[in-house]
Amino acid sequence: MKKTLVSFFVMLMCAVYAQAQYSILPYEIKGAGTGAQGSYVVEVTVTSKKSNINDDEFVKCAVHGVLFKGFFNDDLRQSQKPLAGSAMSEEQHADFFQTFFVSSYSNYGQALSTSRRVTKVKKEYKIKATVTVNKDQLRKDLEAAGVIKGLNSGF
């Protein structure tokens, strides 16, 4: 009985820990112009209670947005679909993304620190930054991991 309880407790803690390790701040994403070949340039607006957000948080939001939301910008006549197909893909490959969004994501983007702008709205801060996402490498690595299909899969 004791063993069963201990096992149950360990499993519960694992589940809680797994949920806890993958969190993303509320954000909005939009296109910020055509990037160099193989990359997207996006503008990420993060909502936070703190005004000093780490660059990595912007990269995480940008990579997440490129993968599952896609982005557009009416002024720049820019529109891109989500790289992973849709938000459903995040659930389908939950195990992969739990690990991916802990550290791997940082290899696929870079925030331009000079682009940062902070606005205070009531008790929260809206912080904007421009991020370059290396979408070609991101796509290739996700294809290799079997998360998304390549154009030549099956041929």
Binding site: T34, G35, S79, Q80, K81, L83, K135, K149, L151, F155
Partner: peptide, 20 residues
Amino acid sequence: EEAVLEKMDGFVSQLQVFFD
């Protein structure tokens, strides 16, 4: 060049739907 880079991903994703 900008137009090709900007339009290619959307185009390829439709091609992917055709292959699927």
